[in-house]
């Protein structure tokens, strides 16, 4: 799998109603650390099964950044059964996400 781009409109169906955990990357095009992080998430999306990887642009979808109280990006939130299970802020090494996904 790859990292799938989602929007406010598709957030519920793609994330909240997903049968499997979803790792959502909240990012923006102007954010350097977000760009650095993306290849790591792409790699993990290929390596990990049973987890969905999604990305949402917070400039185009500010409602979702508000909804989850995000004030710094990259912000990666792991959703399980429609609820936030874990959150990671800033550029972090691959192992940190490995650990997060268990």
């Amino acid at each position: 799998m790859a990292v799938k781009t989602i929007t406010t409109e598709t957030f519920a169906s793609e994330v909240l109603q997903s049968n499997i955990p979803v790792l959502v990357d909240f990012y923006a095009d102007w954010c350097g650390p977000c760009k650095m992080l993306r290849p790591t998430l792409e790699e993990l999306s290929v390596e990990k099964s049973g987890v969905k990887f999604a990305a949402i642009n917070i400039d185009d979808n500010p409602e979702m950044a508000d909804e989850y109280g995000i004030s710094s990006i990259p912000c990666v939130i792991l959703f399980k059964n429609g609820k936030e299970a874990d959150r990671s802020i800033g550029l972090r090494p691959k192992e940190a996400f490995d650990e997060m996904l268990g």
């Binding site: 109280g69 995000i70 710094s72 990006i73 800033g90």
Partner: peptide, 17 residues
């Protein structure tokens, strides 16, 4: 509270405020 209001980089996170 880092990423929930506390920041060390105004140019990175200013847009949220």
């Amino acid at each position: 509270l880092v990423g929930r209001g506390v920041s060390y980089c105004a140019t990175c996170d200013g847009a949220f405020f």
